[in-house]
Amino acid sequence: MTAAQADLQIDRPSVADGAALWRIAKDSKALDLNSSYSYLLWCRDFAATSAVARDEHGEPVGFITGYVRPDSPGTLLVWQVAVDEAHRGRGLAAALLDGLATRAVAEHGVTTVETTITPGNTASERLFTSFAERRGARLEREVLFDAGLFPDGPHDPEVLYRIGPLSQ
């Protein structure tokens, strides 16, 4: 953990964090923004497989949402990663991902992390590539959802990043 991260606490989100997670996602201008309701539900139903970073006042400044895939219980799917603009560039996203993966391995027996990244999202590509390197895990990429599958207008393809096997 860096000195800049020392004042931050990483833990599970609570329903009370839902509005802040929605705001951080909205302000990112990079994520597909879901409804505010969905962030409240996520903090209720998937808190065990998600993480939030809090500043010295306990306010959320970054988050990762994820879930264990029902048809692949050894796989953690990372849905969204976002860090408040004032806290970017300090390695917080990597600390969140490392912490969540370690917890998911210990508590859920996860051996693989998956996420999807649109081509050109350099920050996410670097985050997950460096995560695989830190874990000494294999990284496989393939298009999961081609651009033509999205019914709501132009959308880049979503490339699946599969990282594993993980160990504690």
Rank of each mutant, 00 (worst) to 15 (best):
S35K: 09
D27W: 00
T2Y: 00
T116C: 08
S50R: 06
T102R: 14
D55R: 05
T111I: 03
F63S: 00
E158Y: 13
A106M: 02
D84E: 15
I24T: 04
D152C: 03
Q168K: 11
A82V: 05
A25T: 12
S50G: 08
A132G: 12
G164V: 05
L21G: 01
W42V: 06
D7H: 11
D27E: 15
T118M: 08
D98E: 15
H87P: 01
E56P: 00
R126H: 14
T102A: 15
R138W: 08
R135F: 09
V68E: 05
D32T: 12
G89N: 04
A147P: 10
L92V: 03
D98H: 12
T112I: 14
E140L: 14
F128H: 10
T112K: 10
L40A: 07
Q5I: 13
A123L: 12
G91E: 05
S124N: 07
H87I: 00
R103E: 12
P119I: 06
P157C: 12
A25M: 01
F46I: 03
W79D: 07
L40C: 00
G62H: 04
I24A: 02
F150M: 10
T102W: 01
H57F: 13
A132T: 08
E125D: 15
A82L: 05
A82G: 13
T65P: 03
A101C: 08
V68H: 04
S36W: 00
G74K: 09
D27S: 04
P157R: 13
I117R: 02
Q9Y: 03
G66W: 09
I64A: 09
S14T: 12
T115K: 07
P151T: 11
D146R: 14
L21K: 02
L40V: 03
A104Y: 04
R44I: 02
K26E: 09
